[in-house]
């Protein structure tokens, strides 16, 4: 099961990141997780949001370069060695990780969002070894038990 990640190009200029969050807030789009990759001149904000298609639309209307990318969110137990085990399996399947970060909607376990060189092979490999991945609704909705 692949999930949609919303990516935005942000120049290193005052107020640009805030403009992204403002736009999403104005349209009641929830950001479940994000990772910000930075270079000296620009940043890439990658997000899992409650409504990726709508998120892309509103950001584009604001003039941003935004796109949707397929990623997978692997569920792993919150204990030593689990991330290592997943990475080892993927490495043995000759896959490379383009980037990864954690998903905040996994309840007491953890989900790792990954962009890999070959997503289909990755899904098959994980499935073969009994790892589950998040569905779209699991990823885009807040499943946490923490109330605040």
């Amino acid at each position: 099961m692949l999930i949609k990640q919303l990516s935005v190009f942000i120049e290193n200029r005052k107020g640009r990141l805030e403009r992204v969050t403002e736009t999403l807030c104005k349209h009641n789009i929830n950001i479940l997780s994000f990772s910000l990759a930075d270079t000296s001149e620009y940043g890439l904000l990658r997000m899992i949001v409650s409504d990726p298609e709508f998120g892309k639309k509103v950001l584009k209307e604001e003039g941003f370069s935004a796109k949707l990318t397929d990623v997978i969110a692997v569920k792993i137990a919150q204990k030593p060695g689990t991330l290592h085990d997943v990475l080892k399996l993927l490495f043995e399947a000759e896959l490379s990780v383009e980037y990864m970060y954690t998903l905040s909607t996994a309840g007491k376990n953890t989900s790792i969002i990954m962009k890999l060189s070959d997503l289909e092979t990755a899904l098959a490999t994980l499935d073969k070894h009994g790892y589950q991945v998040c569905t779209a609704s699991e990823a885009y909705e807040n499943n946490d038990f923490v109330d605040k």
Binding site: Q5, S7, F9, A37, T39, Y42, L44, R46, K60, S65, A66, K67, T69, E98, Y99, K115
Partner: peptide
């Protein structure tokens, strides 16, 4: 300008 059609979510592609 980085237009959507050649914008990538990967830094290495942009570089």
């Amino acid at each position: 300008e980085v237009e959507e059609r050649f914008f990538s979510d990967e830094i290495k592609q942009l570089e």
